[in-house]
């Protein structure tokens, strides 16, 4: 594999909050064009890892490289060039509450390309809205008027605003009903295939893992203890992995993924 194919490279990452050590010598590679699922028990620092990668959390030690650029210790101006090449969906959407959904989508466009004509920006926002799977009448609504599933879709549409190469999703299906969650999984998969995205996906949702993830990284004991396809992980003899995939919920998700495609 050449270096070009690795879009996120984490080496020796350590994060501490006071006495509490979250990560210690964590390594992880994300390949171009894959959907990598990150799993781990609550409090194992999945979100902290994502925050370290996207530069919201300065790690205590270690190197983080995104799209070939070092992320640790970069100043704001340099980091900006990388920031426009990724999109991030936060766990609770993090939509700007004083702007409408369409205006939320326009924020990154205005920030990086202020010279586009307003009518073109409005049109871009419209088709991004449709890409996120929202109907046109969601455009002029405010985030407080949206349901949980619509907030996630609006957040995804904003993440897609600048045609990113890399998409970070923090628990995209958490808080959605199973039907909405399955629809969201399909949306992510179809967008990933059409737009040739690399997706870094934090999830607790076993159905999501089986349905759309190419590889899964398991976070435990302050590092990534294993990365691989689900069958590869199942072959490992780690108690947490076994319990995770072979627990009642894990088996249910595995069974449903083997059934013929739902009609």
């Amino acid at each position: 594999m050449t270096d070009d194919e690795i879009v996120i490279r984490i080496r020796g990452l350590s994060n501490r909050f006071g006495e509490q050590v979250v990560h210690e010598g964590l390594d992880l590679d994300v390949r171009r064009g894959e959907i990598l699922g990150v799993v781990g028990g609550s409090g194992t620092g999945k979100s902290v890892m994502m925050r370290s990668v996207i530069g919201l959390q300065t790690p205590a030690e270690g190197e983080v490289e995104v799209l070939g650029e070092n992320m640790v210790g970069r100043n704001e101006d340099e980091a900006k060039n990388i920031r426009r090449r990724w999109g991030i969906l936060f766990q609770n959407g993090a939509l700007f509450s004083t702007l409408t959904v369409a205006e939320n989508i326009e924020v990154p466009i205005h920030e990086y390309f202020p010279f586009l004509s307003p009518s073109l920006v409005d049109e871009i926002a419209s088709y991004k809205l449709a890409m996120g799977g929202l109907s046109p009448d969601a455009g002029p609504k405010f985030p407080s008027e949206l349901s949980g599933g619509m907030v996630k879709r609006a957040g995804l549409a904003r993440a897609l605003a600048l045609d990113p190469e890399l998409l970070f999703l923090d628990e995209p299906t958490a808080g959605l009903d199973p039907i909405a969650a399955a629809a969201f999984d399909e949306l992510i998969l179809s967008l990933q295939q059409r737009l040739e995205l690399t997706v870094f996906l934090i999830t607790h949702d076993l159905d999501t893992l089986y349905a759309i993830c190419d590889r899964v990284a398991v976070l435990a004991d302050r590092k990534v203890i294993a990365v691989g396809t689900i069958p590869e992980l199942l072959a490992l003899d780690h108690p947490w992995i076994q319990e995770y995939f072979n627990g009642p919920r894990g088996r249910a998700a595995a069974n449903s993924s083997e059934e013929p495609a739902r009609v």
């Binding site: 409408t100 369409a102 926002a125 419209s126 088709y127 991004k128 449709a130 969601a138 455009g139 002029p140």
Partner: peptide
């Protein structure tokens, strides 16, 4: 061509601000 088809598929004009 595939990109052109995609944007065509997502062509649903939406209002940006409330009326």
């Amino acid at each position: 061509q595939s990109l052109l088809d995609q944007v065509a598929e997502f062509d649903h004009p939406a209002r940006v601000r409330p009326e």
